[in-house]
Design a protein around this nucleic acid. Sequence first.
DNA 1: TAGATTGTTAATCGATTAACAATC
DNA 2: TAGATTGTTAATCGATTAACAATC
Lengths: 206, 206
Amino acid sequence: MAERLTVGVAARLSRYLQVLTQARKMGKDRISSQEISDYTNINATQIRRDLSGFGKFGKRGVGYNIDSLLGEIRKILRTQGQHNIALIGAGRLGQAIASSPIFAEHGINIAAVFDTDPDKVGRSIGSLAVTPYAELRDTVRDRNIIVGVIAVPADGAQEAADDLIEAGVKIVFNYSEALLNVPGDVAVHASNPAVELLYALYFHLT
Amino acid sequence: MAERLTVGVAARLSRYLQVLTQARKMGKDRISSQEISDYTNINATQIRRDLSGFGKFGKRGVGYNIDSLLGEIRKILRTQGQHNIALIGAGRLGQAIASSPIFAEHGINIAAVFDTDPDKVGRSIGSLAVTPYAELRDTVRDRNIIVGVIAVPADGAQEAADDLIEAGVKIVFNYSEALLNVPGDVAVHASNPAVELLYALYFHLT
DNA sequence: TAGATTGTTAATCGATTAACAATC
DNA sequence: TAGATTGTTAATCGATTAACAATC
């Protein structure tokens, strides 16, 4: 299995990672494919199939050891190290992101938070001081950051994306509702709760 | 096409809705499948195929009229009305959600915001006053709310979910990192930016 | 042993894509 | 007309699922 994972497999593996991380926090040692299925709505056979492509990680009649499976999946996803990311915007959403354990839990380190508002610069959010937006380019370059999270209002999102990309960022998470124009070698991830909701409602209503 | 949409089609149609809404805000009248593809990373042929299953909405050589396509997709997804949702948690994340146009833009109305913190109760966020958590059950029942958005810390998330479900909620959006145990007839949607990031990094690194 | 759960097979279905005629 | 873009076909590939032997 030296080949590149398909998009679907990689997406599912990262979801298993999330479930395993939380299950461990809840004090569990082992977990079955059925339990992972209950939490992810991914079919249990599919889960066993995804995993068995890389090795025999489970014990029949018992399930999977959480710690060891976490290690295996991290190896497959090559995501064992620490990753530095930049956060743009120190408003309510930026503060919520910076103070959430959700990134740290997965080895992702918010290396810098930027804002254009002079009132916000210097204040600390999470364990970081807000850096002036003007220093974005140098900081991103110096710290070799390739991921930027955009948590600014829609009308500033494209500019933030342009500046991040100019500084070398290759992966952008867009939390504004704006559509971003980016070069072909940059990946944009956007999550829109309203869109997901419309889709959930469809299945509820039919 | 009276059949229920597959999960994939419904998910993609809601993403087209998002792109069309934003494109219209940017002043555009028409859009091609290729443009939608650029914004969504969904293959242009797939987009045309998804749409042509329901009718001939486009004009060859021209593209799709944005307003009319918006209407058609809303019809297909049966999501033309207003939907009331409840927001649990008036912290930074709750405030960010309540003050974002992201829900209103798609006809989704935040009907109530709840918090257990007496300091937060009564304060207004967005255009709403924060309601005491104790009134959750009655409010959700009275207003016939079937969607709840959980924006509380992980240690309160399960309790919030239990209370919402007891009051009749069938769709839960979980913005905490906790795993939720819910009955089989309740749909949980969780979005974890860290998980998406691990997955994005994999494709960047390989 | 008895019960549980994995790993794997086989069959089916939907997603994806390239290619291109139709036509605006 | 000439260029652009849809709608559709056909072929391929991955996802999904049920079923069950293997085995802890």
